Structure formats: C-alpha cells, structure tokens
Computed example of a mutant assay.
Amino acid sequence: MDKSKLIIFGDNWDVYLTAYKDLIDDPRITYIPSFRPKGLLGQLQRLQYNPKVNHIVSLPYKHLWTPYYLRHEKGEKYCFLIMEHWLRYESGLRLLPYLRKTYPKGKIVCFIQDLIETVKDQYTGKQIDVKYIKHYTDLLISFDEADAIKHEACYHPTVFSQQAKVNQSTKYDLYFLGRDKGRLKMLLAIAQEAKIRNISCKFVMLEVPQKDRIEFEGIVYSDKDVSYQENLAMAAESRCIIELLQQKASSPTFRTWEAIAQNRKLMTNNQNIKASPFYDKNYISVFHDELDLDWTFIKNRNIYTESNPYQERISPIRLVEFMEEKLGIKIDHT
C-alpha cells in the first residue's frame, strides 16, 4: 500500500511545539505552524485577516492565501491533519473546501484539542460550525470523551513527545502554574497546610491583580507569561504537580502528560481520570478539595524510578496510528 504524506496545519504555540516535537522533527512530515507568512507578505495578510477590520467590512479574497501553504507540494497522496487554530479562521480561509477540491485522493482530519464550545470563529464570534467541518473531513477527532460523544466525533487524547531525561533530584514537593480563575483560595489553603507538614511548595500564579494577591511562603506572582520550557523545567524540579481543572473537561490534560513525561507524580481534582487508561494510583492522586489531599502520597517515594511506563502511550505516533486505523491508510513517517 502506497503511503500518504502527512501535512499538519498546526500551531506555533510553544505547548504544541513541545507536544508534537516527534512529528515536527520527522523529515517525512510537514508541519505548518502558522497561516501567517513571514516578512512583508505576513504584514499584508495580517491586515486582510484582521478580525476587527472584518467585523466592520468583510475584506474579500482571504481564501486566495490557501494555495500558498502547499506551494512546494507536488504529490497526490496526502493526509492533512488540521488543528483548531486554523478552524478559528476557516470562514475566511476556506482551507477545507480547497483541500477537498485540490486533493480529491487526500484524507482530511480535524483534531480539536479544546472544548468545541470554546473554539470561536474569529470573524463571526460564534462557535465553529461542526456540521460544516464534518462535510469536508474524513475524520473529526476531539480530545475530550464527553465532547466527542456530544458532537458525534472520534475520541483521542492529546499527545506529548518524549522529553529529555530529567534529573531525579527535586527542589520542592508541590508545583502549580496557572492563572487565578478562582483557584488562589484553594492553593493558599494547600500552602498553609503544607507548611505545617514541612512540605515545600512552588505555586506560580499568573496575572493576579495587586489588590487580590495574598503573600504566603511558596506562592509566587508573575506579571508576565511563563514559557512552556520554563514550566517544564520547574515541573522537573518538583516531586508532584498539582492540576486544578476549571472547565468541564472530562479527559486527561497536558498536566497529566507533563507528569508522565517528566516522571513526576500528579495530584488532580479531575474525578474522571480514574476511568482513564492512563490512571495509575502509583503516580496519580485524585482529590475533591484542599481538605481531601493525600499528604502521604506526596512524600512517598516515586515507584517509577527511571521512567513512567505510560510515556510511549502518549506519543504523537499513537495519534498517527489511530488515524491510519480509522482511515484505512498508511502514513509515511520514521
């Protein structure tokens, strides 16, 4: 069976660049991180695609940019993997009908790695049109099991590439990074109890207004974003990562993958993770609130001394194999 070339319409968000690194580095796969060309062309497109301008007057010919992204491709057998970043601009870009018409033998897959109701069209302000997407795609995938059922899509979790082996020594016991979103109160209570128990914390809170900040040992406030590589470095220096879900997500998140990839333990309020094939009580502890934490779990020695056995199962190669199985094709990759 002839193999299809995989072209990924991805994202230049540093989280995705880390998660998909195994595919990005594969010379047989093309990863397009952004629809924005470099240089003068990019500035011209920025104006034409500007949502604020297009809310006033819809600028024509935005779809004429689409062939630009595939200008170097001369084959016929392709599999296109499109992420939600591109779908946010689809009503102007019109990538899906272009691919279907230009590459009739190709396969089109959309992988939405956010709750669908939160993915908004940049021009209409409305939720992306799932019916429209299904019309042009061979496979629609959601990262969330409940969302997949709701929208009659296939489910596959997000992925995470193999990370460089980290030093097993730690600087602190508990690590959290994120915006407040109502979580500061719980984190403060955890930090207070942790101090009593001689457990060290590093809770990095982003963009918390000065008037809302509560100073306490182990809580750090940052007025600027922390790069994903900085986040991974701090996670690697911790014994245990804390995850506090705020949305209605029902499936494992990147915090789970970070714990697996960095061979760290995870404490999460995601009750649904117990039904996940990635759940293992040896490295995941589930709690309801700050009164429900298993403090012994934090201090106990990590049973996985070298690497977490689930690392291979979250590889982006598993996503490629899933697409091959669902589409009945073979994809060219190393």
Rank of each mutant, 00 (worst) to 15 (best):
E145F: 13
A275W: 01
A19F: 10
Y283W: 09
I149D: 12
D332V: 02
D138W: 11
I133L: 09
G328S: 09
S222N: 10
V320E: 03
Y123I: 11
D180H: 04
V286A: 05
Y221L: 01
A233D: 12
K185N: 13
E230N: 11
K105V: 00
S250T: 15
R318M: 13
I284T: 12
I128T: 09
W65K: 08
P27W: 10
I331P: 04
G39C: 02
E73V: 14
V320K: 03
G106W: 07
E117Y: 15
H72S: 13
I112G: 07
V226K: 01
T334W: 09
N54D: 11
A194F: 03
T66A: 09
L244M: 10
F254S: 10
F9L: 07
F80Y: 08
F80S: 06
E76T: 15
Q45S: 06
Y132E: 12
D144R: 05
G178Q: 03
S161R: 03
K5F: 09
N231F: 12
V220F: 13
M267H: 01
Y304R: 01
D2N: 12
Y132I: 05
T253M: 03
K126E: 15
E321Q: 13
M234R: 05
F216H: 14
D129M: 06
I317M: 13
Y89M: 02
Q246T: 15
D121L: 00
Q163G: 09
F143H: 11
S251E: 11
C240P: 04
W86R: 02
F203P: 04
H85I: 07
F254T: 13
Q168A: 08
Q122P: 00
T158G: 14
I29S: 02
Q262P: 00
Y68C: 01
K248F: 00
R100Y: 08
I7P: 03
I298Q: 00
M267S: 05
D292F: 08
K150A: 15
K330Y: 10
L47S: 11
A259P: 05
V15N: 11
I108G: 08
C79F: 07
F160I: 01
K265F: 01
K211N: 12
E325C: 08
M267K: 00
C240L: 07
K202R: 15
L87T: 10
E90I: 07
C201K: 01
S285E: 11
Q45E: 14
T118W: 08
R239N: 14
D294F: 10
D26Q: 04
G182R: 03
L291H: 15
Q311L: 13
N269W: 07
E215F: 11
E325V: 05
